[in-house]
Computed example of a mutant assay.
Amino acid sequence: MSHKIPVSVLVVIHTPDLHVLVMERADHPGFWQSVTGSCDTLDEPLADTARREALEETGIDAAQHHLIDWGHHIEYEIYPRWRHRYAPGVTRNTEHWFGLLVSGKVSVRMSPREHVQAEWLPYQEAAERCFSRSNAEAILQLPERLAAYHARQAALTKDRA
């Protein structure tokens, strides 16, 4: 088995009315989260990682929706229970945040080896459900990040006119 690369993405999948998809981990019942995953190679573009992980974990094709690079990353200590997946001595991971704006509560096809159930929840409830503080923080930032995205889209539209 090859080791995981300590560079990953967090993808907050959400609707225009701020409902967020959260899923319960198969390997740790009670641990709810957004889509997460590591880069497959050191040179894999982060947006490609986000698209791949969304498709693998939910069956949602990001190419059919709006993948938004939030331009934000955090570094955190890898939970001891998951360090065996990384090279010896690796204890920290850099996580890059993305939003995936879908048209509504689209159907989800979970990977059963990763998640056992999924729910669409209002963003505050989704944040409360997450076991990871940084995942909860990302979800709580959703209203301002979505407003910024819409402002950028409006400015682009105005510039084209």
Score class of each variant (00 low, 15 high):
25 R>K: 04
25 R>S: 02
27 D>S: 12
28 H>C: 04
28 H>E: 09
30 G>L: 01
31 F>I: 04
32 W>S: 00
32 W>R: 02
33 Q>E: 13
33 Q>N: 10
34 S>D: 14
34 S>Y: 11
35 V>L: 02
35 V>G: 02
35 V>A: 04
35 V>P: 04
35 V>K: 04
36 T>W: 15
36 T>C: 15
37 G>K: 10
37 G>S: 10
37 G>F: 10
38 S>I: 07
38 S>V: 12
39 C>V: 15
39 C>D: 06
39 C>H: 09
39 C>A: 15
39 C>Y: 04
40 D>V: 09
40 D>E: 14
40 D>S: 13
41 T>K: 05
41 T>E: 05
41 T>H: 09
43 D>M: 00
46 L>C: 07
46 L>V: 04
47 A>T: 06
47 A>I: 03
48 D>A: 10
49 T>S: 11
49 T>Y: 03
51 R>D: 02
52 R>H: 08
53 E>D: 06
55 L>Y: 08
55 L>V: 01
56 E>S: 08
56 E>I: 06
57 E>L: 08
57 E>M: 07
58 T>W: 01
59 G>R: 00
61 D>P: 03
62 A>P: 06
62 A>L: 07
62 A>W: 07
64 Q>R: 14
66 H>K: 12
67 L>P: 09
67 L>M: 07
69 D>T: 10
69 D>W: 09
70 W>E: 15
71 G>Y: 12
71 G>F: 11
71 G>V: 11
72 H>D: 09
73 H>D: 13
73 H>F: 14
73 H>E: 14
74 I>D: 14
74 I>E: 12
75 E>L: 06
76 Y>F: 10
76 Y>I: 12
77 E>C: 13
78 I>Q: 08
78 I>T: 12
78 I>P: 10
78 I>S: 09
79 Y>D: 15
